[in-house]
Amino acid sequence: MAKRKILVTRRWPKPVEDRLSETYDATLNSDDVPMSSEAIAAAFSDYDAICPTVSDKLPAGVFPAETPRTRILGNFGVGFSHIDTDAAGAAGIVVTNTPDVLSECTADLAITLMLMAARRASEGEREVRAGDWAGWRPTHMIGTKVSGATFGVLGFGRIGRTAAKRAHHGFGMKVIYYDAFPVKPEFSAETRAEARDSIEAVLREADVVSLHMPGGRENYHLINAERLAMMKPTAILVNTARGEVVDANALADALGRGTIAGAGLDVYEGEPTIPPALLRTNAVLLPHLGSATKATREAMGMMVADNLDAFFAGREPPNRVA
C-alpha cells in the first residue's frame, strides 16, 4: 500500500521529521523558507495532509472550491487563528492542534518577560553592550518590584493557570483573572486566584497583566488605547498569546506617554514585521520564543504525528479542533 503523501511547511525537529518520513511519503522544507499562499493553495490537490505552523496563513481564499485531496491539517502549535476553520470544514478538512505540551515553557516565558520588563533587564543589557554603563549608582535604571504585587491573567486556560502558579508560588503574587468561560474551582484554588467579572476590572487592579487568550476575530485588538488607559501607570503588560490581541500602535503610544510603565512581548500582529513605533519604546521584544525548547518543540511535532496516525487509521484525532 502506498504511503500517504504529507507536506511539512517549515523545518521541524529532526526526530519528528524522521518519524514522519518513515511513516509517510513526506515532503520536507529543508531550507525552512516560508511557503507562499499560492504554493499552499496548490498543495491541497497533491497531498493527503498538510502540516502548517503559525507562520503560515490559511484564510478562506486558500481553500479550494472543489473537494481537495487533502483531508487533514496537522497544525504545529496550540493556536490556530491563522487557519480559517470554517473554510476548512466546508472543504471537508479536519484541523488538529498541539495543546498541553507547550504550557509550561510558554508560561516560563511570560514570567521571563514580566521580570525583564519590571527590572529593565533588556535596557540594561543594551546599555552594557553599547559601552554606555558608567557604573553603579543609587538612582540608575530603577525598576519595579513584582514580589507581592498583583498578577492579572486574561484567559485562565492551561497556559494562563501555569503562569499564575509561577507568579503566586514563586513571587508571592496575588492572582486575579478573567475568563469568558467558567473555570473549575480547583483551578483557581491552586493559586488562590480571584475571579473578576470583566476584562476592565483586571486591567484596573493588576500590577502585571498577562494575556493568554486565543487570537482570531473575537479578540482582535482586545487591548486597545481605551483599555490601556485603564491600567495603572506603574503596570506592565505581557503578551505570549497572539499578536493580534494587542493594538501595537496604541501600545507604543501608551508606553511613550507613560500611560503604563512597560511591556514584554513575544508575539506580534503581522510577524515578523513589527511597527517601528514599538521598536522605539522601552518594551521587551522577543522573537516568538514561547515554546522554543528542544523538548517542547519535539513533543509538539510528535503530537502532530499522533494526530495524523489516528486520522489515517480511521480514528478520531486526539486533538481535533475543527
Rank of each mutant, 00 (worst) to 15 (best):
G172E: 00
G172V: 03
M173H: 08
A134M: 09
A117K: 02
A118Q: 10
T96G: 03
A65S: 14
T112D: 01
T139I: 05
L113F: 00
R126S: 02
H169E: 04
M116H: 01
I72P: 01
E125W: 00
V94P: 07
I72V: 13
E66A: 10
K174W: 14
E125K: 10
F63H: 07
A130H: 12
Y178W: 15
A121R: 09
A91H: 04
D108C: 12
F76R: 06
A164K: 09
L73I: 13
E66S: 02
G135Y: 02
A110G: 01
I83G: 14
R119I: 00
G74I: 15
F80H: 11
D179Q: 03
D86N: 14
V153S: 01
E66G: 10
V95E: 15
D108W: 12
R71E: 14
A65R: 10
R161E: 05
G135C: 12
S122L: 02
A91R: 09
P64H: 01
M116F: 12
I159K: 00
A110D: 10
G143H: 12
G79H: 08
S122F: 08
A110E: 01
L154D: 03
A117P: 11
A163I: 13
G143M: 12
R137F: 00
G172L: 09
T162N: 12
I159W: 00
A163K: 14
P99V: 07
T144M: 13
I142L: 15
G135R: 03
V94E: 14
F76A: 11
A107N: 01
A149Y: 09
K174V: 09
G170Q: 11
F156S: 12
S81G: 04
V95F: 11
F156C: 09
G160S: 05
R161H: 11
E125A: 02
D132A: 15
Y177M: 06
E127S: 05
G157H: 07
T98H: 07
L109I: 02
L115D: 05
A130E: 11
W136N: 05
W133H: 06
A90P: 04
V94D: 02
V128E: 02
A118K: 03
V175D: 11
R166L: 02
F63T: 06
E127V: 15
V94N: 07
I176H: 09
P68L: 04
H82I: 14
V175A: 15
S147H: 10
G155I: 00
L73F: 15
S147Q: 01
Y178S: 11
E104H: 04
T144R: 15
H168C: 13
T70M: 10
K174A: 13
G170A: 08
A130W: 14
H168Q: 07
N97S: 08
A149E: 05
L109F: 11
M116W: 06
G148C: 01
A65N: 06
A167P: 08
V128F: 11
V128I: 13
Y177R: 06
E123K: 00
S103C: 11
I72S: 10
S103E: 02
L109G: 06
R166A: 05
D86V: 15
P64R: 07
R119W: 00
E123V: 05
G92P: 04
